[in-house]
Every structure is written in C-alpha cells, then in structure tokens.
Write a protein that binds this DNA or RNA. Structure first.
Lengths: 123, 123
DNA sequence: GTCTTGAATTGCGGTTTGCAAGCCAAGGGC
DNA sequence: GCCCTTGGCTTGCAAACCGCAATTCAAGAC
C-alpha cells in the first residue's frame, strides 16, 4: 500500500526563527504563486498551473507540487486515483497563508508602483 | 557628484500581479532576513548582518544590500561617508513590510512545528 | 490495439549560490 | 609619516538550481 505523495520532508532549517523557517520552505520565486493560484481559483490541475500568466517550467512545477504536498500545504483532490485530471486543493495549513499573501499584495501595490507602473489593483 | 548607491533597478517583472511582483523582488531565501534583522534591531552594519544566526555569505549579502538599496527599502544612515562603520536603516517602504513578515512568522509558528519542532516563539 | 492528451522526467546550457581567499581603504598606535 | 588592524567588499571556482525543449509515460477514448 502506497502513502500517496507524502514522503517525509527533509529540509535544512537554517535557524530556529519562524521567519527564517518560512523562507526555508517558501523562499523562492514560485511556491507562493502556486498557493496564490489555489487561493484564487479553488482547485487547479497541473496544466492550469502551467498556463498561468508567469509561465512556470514543467520541471519546476512538478518539483514544487511535490514539495508543497510533502509539507501538507496542498493535496490531490482524489489521492488514490491517477494523476491525469486530478486537481490539487489547499489544505487548511496551505490556506492559512492567505493573510501573509494578502499583506504581500498590499505592500506591492503601494510600494512597487514606482518601479513597475503596470502593477494591478487586486490579486 | 555621485548618486550614492541608488542605481536605476532593472527587474524582469513576470506579470502585473502584485504578489508575483513582490516575489520578483523579494522571492529568495535572504532578502527578507535582512529586513527582519533591521526590523528587530533598528540598524545594522555589514558585519552584524554577516554574524546573524543563519550565516549569509558575504557576496550574497553585498548583492542583496545593493538590491534593497536600489529599491529604496533600506539606506545608509550616513550616505556620504565611507562604508566602514556605516550602518543601514529601513526606509518607510522597507518598514512597511512588517505586517507581511509578522504574518509569515505567525504562520510558521502554528504550521511548521510538525516539521521543525525547535521553532521558536517570537521572532 | 492505436491515438490522444495530461502529467510528468530527462538533458543540457546558463545563471545563481556557497564557501574560501584575498583586496582595499580608513583609522589607530607609534 | 608608516605599519597594523579591521570592517566592507570582490573574486574564483565548484556545486546546485533554473529555464527551456524534447521526450516519456500512462490512462482513457475510440
């Protein structure tokens, strides 16, 4: 019997600080965008992620989906069925990132306009 | 006459989304730790950053300080004096990241304990 | 069985990171 | 003045990671 994607997780925590630990896990250019897509759209399949505006490469997408699954931030809607057509959902743990992402978005809108005038209003 | 550190900034914005734009700029493992150190300690010199718990490499530290300066999130306390002994401070723009970092920290404390039990209470 | 199509994996060049070493300039002691 | 220290940075190089294109894999549809 197979444990469906959720292998142990092995991360080198740089320190005991919560902010540093969050960055150990989500400190890259793509992970939080996957979370964003799920927060906005509810569920998304592999190809929907692939098609989203920023253009993530498929190898990175696959590896991030694996990481986020192993951290239990996302999960497959239908864990014991084939991958094809099987979407991902946020877990409660993943959904709990909403306030942090919203703060980021707010900050961006008010403080990044000077450098990137096209920046848009809502998420 | 020299413009003191603040060169134009040239970033490839992946999209018009504020969250994606925030990550274009701060989406790595180190930038936000520099902001964290400044939020906690007020001002910090190059060597104080270098000595902080996570152990940032000096080349990365220098390049991040340059980036954050050019984005006007940080600045030298004494812009037209030599670098030696010259600390950095958060600008208003940089300090505005506080709520986002706090949300991150909160999330980490409640949701990363399972994977990293040593994680600490406050920042 | 063959075709199609969504979900990956592989290969490879280019960029970024991590680490150690070294360089440079401003004071301080003499 | 001159040397020595010390904080701030640059350089070089190996390893890891990213971006892109091509390929494989497997599950339905037919």
């Amino acid at each position: 019997m197979e444990q469906a994607d959720t292998e142990p997780v092995d991360i080198d925590w740089r320190s005991v600080c919560p902010i540093s630990s969050a960055l150990d896990v989500l400190g890259d250019k793509w992970s939080l965008l996957i979370i964003r897509d799920l927060l906005m759209h509810g569920t998304r399949t592999y190809s929907e992620f692939r098609e989203s505006e920023e253009g993530i490469a498929t190898n990175i997408l696959a590896s991030r989906l694996k990481l986020l699954s192993s951290l239990q931030l996302i999960e497959r809607t239908n864990p014991d069925r084939p991958a094809r057509g099987n979407a991902f959902t946020l877990t409660e743990r993943g959904a709990a990132l909403r306030p942090a992402l919203e703060e980021f978005g707010r900050w961006s809108q008010t403080h990044l306009k000077d450098f990137h005038s096209d920046i848009v209003e809502i998420v």
